[in-house]
């Protein structure tokens, strides 16, 4: 049995602005075990990004509890790659280390090793404008990995890419996360992507959202995300989740 490293209990979030208040999250409960790959799916605007923002401590919660195991650190990968055009690929990957004051020879070597392992070493002195969308996304992931987080939060990491690159990159990202032994929580609106990558899928209801269902994904001969799409259980999960999400039924 794997250790639980994150426990979300009764999480609540209300956004306030001058004219109104928006109850985004009503009652969110889930647990995350070490090295799990978890996906969150739900109708658009239901509060998926909000959950990640709260976990990344970018937003304050309005109620409930987020219990992290001791010494667990969190890295956040935004939907947009947000690479700085005036920094080289290497310098982009080092920004988190600079900010957290952890930039030294050792941490830099770790980043260089990541760039080497994931086929970006030759581009380390280039600027982001010369990279393809998929490569930029990998750079963004390495930038997040550089600070050695235990849990990675991924907000629709592939949504800016075309379908072909999405498939390839989801394989890449999955491999990188598994190789580096990380725990991941990914938000996506693509059901197939969620099933092909995750151990567990959390389905949210529409806003104000609650957890509608949690699926443990059990695929026979599970391998890479692209191959997982061919497993016989795949369509069964797809239909169930699709039905959960369709508000008109």
């Amino acid at each position: 049995m794997k250790d639980t490293i994150l426990n979300v209990k009764g999480l609540k979030k209300i956004y306030h602005d001058r004219k109104s208040e928006i109850e985004a999250l009503e009652d969110i409960n889930f647990t995350v075990n070490e090295k799990d790959f978890i996906s969150i799916v739900g109708p658009s605007g239901c509060g998926k990004s909000t959950i990640l923002s709260i976990l990344a401590m970018l937003e304050e919660k309005s109620g409930g509890e987020v219990i992290l195991k001791d010494n667990i650190s969190i890295g956040y990968m935004l939907q947009n790659d947000s690479l700085f055009s005036w920094r080289t690929i290497l310098d982009n990957c080092l920004i988190g280390l600079e900010i957290t004051g952890k930039l030294n020879k050792e941490s830099k070597n770790y980043v260089l090793k990541l760039l080497k392992t994931y086929g970006l070493y030759d581009f380390k002195d280039k600027y982001p404008s010369s990279l393809s969308g998929g490569m930029r996304q990998r750079v963004a992931l390495i930038r997040t990995l550089a600070i050695k987080p235990d849990i990675l939060l991924l907000d629709e990491p592939m949504s800016a890419l075309d379908y072909q690159s999405r498939l390839a990159i989801s394989d890449d990202i999955y491999k990188i996360i598994k190789n580096e032994g990380k725990t991941a929580i990914m938000v996506t609106h693509d059901i197939a992507e969620a099933i092909s990558m995750s151990d567990k899928i959390i389905v949210l209801s529409k806003r104000p959202s609650k957890v509608k269902k949690i699926y443990d994904i059990k695929l026979s001969n599970k391998s890479t995300p692209i191959n997982n799409r061919k497993c016989k259980e795949f369509s069964k999960y797809y239909d169930m989740i699709w039905r959960d999400l369709d508000v008109h039924i």
């Binding site: 970018l58 890295g75 935004l78 947000s82 988190g96 900010i99």
Partner: peptide
């Protein structure tokens, strides 16, 4: 760009940084 600011904030950047 607000996304850039969010990115730096996710690393707990100070205003000065």
């Amino acid at each position: 760009n607000k996304n850039y600011i969010t990115l730096l904030k996710s690393f707990r950047a100070t205003k000065r940084q």
